[in-house]
Design a protein around this nucleic acid. Sequence first.
DNA 1: CGATGTGCGGAGCAAACCGCTCCGCACTAA
DNA 2: TTAGTGCGGAGCGGTTTGCTCCGCACATCG
Lengths: 221, 221
Amino acid sequence: MNVSKRQLARQAEVARNDEALLRAARRVFARDGERASVNAIAEAAGVGMGTLYRRYDSKTALYERLLVLSNQQWNAALRTAADHPDPWQGLQDLVIESVEYGQGTLAPLRKLTSLPPPTADLASAADRDFAALVERAHACGGLRRDATATDIILLIEQLGRSPLVEQIEELGEAALTTEARAARRRLIAIALGGLAAAPHASLPEPPPAQHLLTARWRGTR
Amino acid sequence: MNVSKRQLARQAEVARNDEALLRAARRVFARDGERASVNAIAEAAGVGMGTLYRRYDSKTALYERLLVLSNQQWNAALRTAADHPDPWQGLQDLVIESVEYGQGTLAPLRKLTSLPPPTADLASAADRDFAALVERAHACGGLRRDATATDIILLIEQLGRSPLVEQIEELGEAALTTEARAARRRLIAIALGGLAAAPHASLPEPPPAQHLLTARWRGTR
DNA sequence: CGATGTGCGGAGCAAACCGCTCCGCACTAA
DNA sequence: TTAGTGCGGAGCGGTTTGCTCCGCACATCG
């Protein structure tokens, strides 16, 4: 059977839809928790409900798919970090990457699913890998000695959700969103500086503009 | 007219109800955003809907009351910080206090109200006070030079909402809640360490137990 | 030119939940 | 007994929910 150009274009659009859906779902789930509505997800992805429901049997199925992807991303990030020649730098990169991906932000929705919680075998293997990475970051003198692996996981969860970024994303102005993301990257850097054993490098990104604090009230009053 | 013991006891209970309501409202509003339901608030406060609605005309009125209280607390905290002999220590205390109070967590609900957003005169007076405090913290050498006032405000907002604390509070186990709060206090300390110009003091609180990460899935499976 | 297939948007359905009202109850003071 | 007070929560109409299902656009095939 031949495959025409048209068909390929169609498939590409399908794939794009698929990705937009997953990306939007992750954002909306993270923001609204278990109350996220499928309507909001479809709208954020720019697709109709039909498109969503042809791919996933239910809201729960979509959520579970996100959980699996999130797990994969965590494992991949762990591997990347483990391969870094400098364990401390590897750990820092891991934190940044995980926070920006939103690692841990799906947790509050566990009620939706009956999938096994992350005490399972796979997860604890990842836990061991992570603990080993932290151990090496301690040993090389980069990570302050009194910070534990649990501290760092909690830090990732804590920074994953950002009121600032979430509120400003809703305005839909690309420039502002970029600024908000940069502002959060500074916060991550501050936290990482607090995790370091030695005095810190200077902060990345230009200082956040004050209008970030007020831009959110656009359209209220 | 005489005031009996019974009357006093009654009034005390009323006052307790009042405070429970406000405390619960702040928690639930912070957690659920503008979708917080009055039902959830009343339940969290352990009172009936009637009790809530005799005190506040509407959900919006309750929210606006919280906004006012939040503003008062911010101003009071600013004054306390300004009075501290060591500006940097005063600023650190301010951050800790504000994060634990939940300063900034009400922002995402602005849609509910028609009160003027915090670009108003009062707020900008507070802004000036805060900027002055930051300035003195810079001058005394405590605060790293490349951290700005906006950074610190965003940090307070960022730490105010804590997935960990919110999820674990829902379990209703006092011991666990205490632990979760202590874990967050360590995160605050880490962040403050990242804000410091000099190498940091050691972290407060014992390291967080790993079971904090798994305790939340109680009752799921 | 139909016939068939495919991916899509969104109107519409029952059920759940929303903010809010209101009534009956427990208790006290007169 | 009567009047007054603070209270819990059932219940009201209206909105929102997760999800179904149908008509449309377009491409391929006979």
